[in-house]
Design a protein around this nucleic acid. Sequence first.
DNA 1: CATGAATGAGCGTTCATTCAT
DNA 2: TATGAATGAACGCTCATTCAT
Lengths: 213, 213, 213, 213
Amino acid sequence: MAGLTTEQRVRRAAIKLFAAKGFHGTGIRDLAQAAGLSSASLYHYMGTKEELLAELMRESLDRLLTTATTAVSGVDSPVERLGRLVVLHVLTHAAQPNETRVVDHEVRALSASARREVVRLRDDYERLWADAIADGIRAGEFTSPEPSLARLALLEMCNGVARWYSPRGPLGLDELATNYAQMAMRLVGGPEQALPSFEYCRDLVSKTWNRRR
Amino acid sequence: MAGLTTEQRVRRAAIKLFAAKGFHGTGIRDLAQAAGLSSASLYHYMGTKEELLAELMRESLDRLLTTATTAVSGVDSPVERLGRLVVLHVLTHAAQPNETRVVDHEVRALSASARREVVRLRDDYERLWADAIADGIRAGEFTSPEPSLARLALLEMCNGVARWYSPRGPLGLDELATNYAQMAMRLVGGPEQALPSFEYCRDLVSKTWNRRR
Amino acid sequence: MAGLTTEQRVRRAAIKLFAAKGFHGTGIRDLAQAAGLSSASLYHYMGTKEELLAELMRESLDRLLTTATTAVSGVDSPVERLGRLVVLHVLTHAAQPNETRVVDHEVRALSASARREVVRLRDDYERLWADAIADGIRAGEFTSPEPSLARLALLEMCNGVARWYSPRGPLGLDELATNYAQMAMRLVGGPEQALPSFEYCRDLVSKTWNRRR
Amino acid sequence: MAGLTTEQRVRRAAIKLFAAKGFHGTGIRDLAQAAGLSSASLYHYMGTKEELLAELMRESLDRLLTTATTAVSGVDSPVERLGRLVVLHVLTHAAQPNETRVVDHEVRALSASARREVVRLRDDYERLWADAIADGIRAGEFTSPEPSLARLALLEMCNGVARWYSPRGPLGLDELATNYAQMAMRLVGGPEQALPSFEYCRDLVSKTWNRRR
DNA sequence: CATGAATGAGCGTTCATTCAT
DNA sequence: TATGAATGAACGCTCATTCAT
């Protein structure tokens, strides 16, 4: 925990606890204890508990969206674009499972207005996937009878990684990502040997998440 | 709500609310109101809130496991088995999204002992998938470099259905299930034209879920 | 429990539980279970919980007062009267410890009006002791500088029996009663060899408590 | 109430209410009101209601045991020892009737483990009495056919003081204590003119109870 | 910055009691 | 007689939040 500001410690504690026990299952006192503060002091570093959640979610989605936009912009090949999206998504979910779980599970805990923002970010992100799939079909590289279904299936299957992947397990990040990219390509009927550069994606993810808020 | 016993009304209310707001986000008074009772009366029909959750989860998983076991037992072809599992899973998640969401999201809210039971049921269920995939690979019908990854990817992708499918949307249950079966076959490199009987699976699911507890 | 009416079972259960856990520590459901009834059925045999307590206390005190009045009326000797009071009191407290404990501990749980009745009965009972002591002093058989103090000391010391006496312990009822009578005589400076008839008192107590309500 | 910390106010309120209405008859809201706090604030100054009770009882018994041990240690004469024990006990029960009533009445409300501690303290205390009586008999100064009975009778008779003594009544503490010492001596057949120093005992009690926790 | 103190509101649960059957 | 069903009120306790210091 050395080198972290108190605010960062609060946010880390929140992410960890919200991921592990849920937003409603995490008390303000749990948070305070995990951050090494009194519960009163917590309020120097956050608004309400719900505002903290909203911030964390917006930030996580922001990073994901930014990274993905960077990765696919200017890339013509839909195959390459979809491949990059899958690998980025999987790497992010494997490397930041707590952030990811919070984003995926706690939308319902947000107030209406915060939820709207988050949903909009999520929609923007999913559009990148939808576009890659649609372009791939148009270009004759993918064959999906129901492109929306494919998108949803792909996203859910990749989200799942956050729920079970462990760096102490048998699979390295590269194998994990490559396998998922292959499964994704198969799922949309694309060329499965055409996989994106793992190193490129890994560096992109790492750059995004090491950048301090 | 006609024709339901009070206990059933309580359980339905619990499933709906736990699915919508989470276990910790649902108060006993919410539950009572949704069931049309006072909060004191609730306790004629349940033990503690947590015991109610545990019962609901066990029952849902029990049904899923029973249905799936029925569907695959005695079937030799791994392709047919996996196909049926996918269709059953998708139909169940589309038709009973609340039960399913609770099962998938609220394991962490269970006490240690209840969690053990639920995890065991889930493990039994996943074994059916693992066996079908492993047998398919052995028989040369599937080609998956990492069978466990394939199983996890398939399950997560099918779970997702409960989060977004709406019977009022453009897709019917048959299209939904058939598409998922096709995507699943592609994902494991199997023969995608060999799809299981939708009617058979639909009847099985319907029989399981119409049976009153 | 054979041969008891349901009402008697209820009263016995109440006495036992009120003695063991206190009036406020005993729930209506405890009572029902101990009496072998549903809590609703209980109300066929009692008024409110508090009325039940009041009845039990009045009845116990009534018996004690009646027995004691019988034992001392027409007896001239204050020594004999005080001796009988001590033996009766001790025997009652040893044989009916639950009734006694309730009477001694739960006055505060009564409503004002019920408390008044109970206190009046108690006062009548204590008057018998006060008279015996005063007469003994007047007759030169007792020497107590503060007769009220002696009365209170005697009563409390005898009440204590209900808190610890066990028929399975080393002391029989006769030794117990005789010893207490001796200690009492000493305490008021009376002739300690002049002890009342144990058999007479035992029979009186036994007659009083075997009489069904 | 001036000069008291909030914690002390809470404890005083608890002692007063537990004594007056019993542990189970006292609600957390009663406690809060008597202490001048909200029921939530109460929990800054105590653990659970039951832990508060246990603390209060342990502390009261601790003081009693300490005072009594001080008073009798190094004293050879059993007559003097028993006399001091009686006077200390009576003074304590007259001066701190609430503490005393709680200790004497609410043992049953304790959890098993707290009860064990309290009973052990009580046993240690009663041993001082048992030793004084046994030594007195051995020395030929007391004549008690059943020493245990004498001990129990003495203790109960002295406990009673807390139930009725009022400083606004006709008796001063000195008369009260002296009379009880005399009655006690008579009860065990000891020399009743040999009474312990009232002033010594009064100062000891007062020192013990004025010491702030 | 940091926190002890404080609280209104609410938590899950149990209370004593009633009543239709 | 007997009870399942029902409930308003209260239980002991924790919640997220504020604020004076």
